[in-house]
Design a protein around this nucleic acid. Sequence first.
DNA 1: CGATATTATTTAGCATAGCTAACTAAATAC
DNA 2: GTATTTAGTTAGCTATGCTAAATAATATCG
Lengths: 150, 150
Amino acid sequence: MPPRNRQARRAPPAAQVATRLHSAAIHLLRRLRVEDQASGLTAPRLSAMSVIVFGGPVTLGDLARAEQVSAPTMSRMVAGLRRLGLVEVTRDPDDRRVQRIRATTRGKALLEAGRGRRVRRLAADLEALSDPEFAALAKALPTLEAIARP
Amino acid sequence: MPPRNRQARRAPPAAQVATRLHSAAIHLLRRLRVEDQASGLTAPRLSAMSVIVFGGPVTLGDLARAEQVSAPTMSRMVAGLRRLGLVEVTRDPDDRRVQRIRATTRGKALLEAGRGRRVRRLAADLEALSDPEFAALAKALPTLEAIARP
DNA sequence: CGATATTATTTAGCATAGCTAACTAAATAC
DNA sequence: GTATTTAGTTAGCTATGCTAAATAATATCG
């Protein structure tokens, strides 16, 4: 008899789930991105602000690595955010080469507002789901989170 | 007695699922983005190529709307992709204002290769899941897809 | 039918975002 | 105490984003 699949019967292959999950993630975020216009910030700046706000005080190198851009690019971006009063930068007293970048109150508020718009839009769509659909999604959530940040 | 929740008992609120789903999608794609370096294309170009390859021949306006950028921005990007030999552009015979943009064989190959790298990486992570985790994810997939593109 | 409006795209010009190469300054190694 | 490494900046280039204005083709309407 043929070898069992990973699930007792007829589980879709991982490659197919990967393809569809990848595509769904792209389309989901593309759709939610519309809300970002209201923030008045560019996408790279919003993304950097998100790392700064949720990642506590970060160094410039941390930020560049997190955003997968070069140090000079991030250096300039932080300068821009600083001019806008969204972040403040102090020197590390123990190692005076490194900076500690943190969000100002205004910066936090701006990011939270933007995130709120995205999440509220998504939540509204979730409300429209049937109970079993919503339950299935909620049940898969921890696994999705594990996959997202290994 | 208190009103029942949407699920019989203790379903998480939509807002919480939305927050977590949003965050998971962001982190998932941020992680997979690493693979894009190998393509040699910038992120906006890869994204546009994806719309062109999967969306059949598209007009410049379609593309600009899909990518949520202005027409001038997309006009220039298409010119760049054309210089690289990744797309070709013809005029619509019925309405000579509009273009029909389509991927060349080389363009298709390049995009498929990049997508393959991302999907293989994701599939490898999915393989490491336990059977119930994988099953839960597979079960939630259609709902996720419905939410992703309304 | 011809003037006018609308639609699709391009051009011009500006700010931001991406890169590499080369520099400064501080900390570490030897 | 000189040499090396590490963190960040400066310079200079290309690409990506925008708005305003131009061009060209189609659609409208009187």
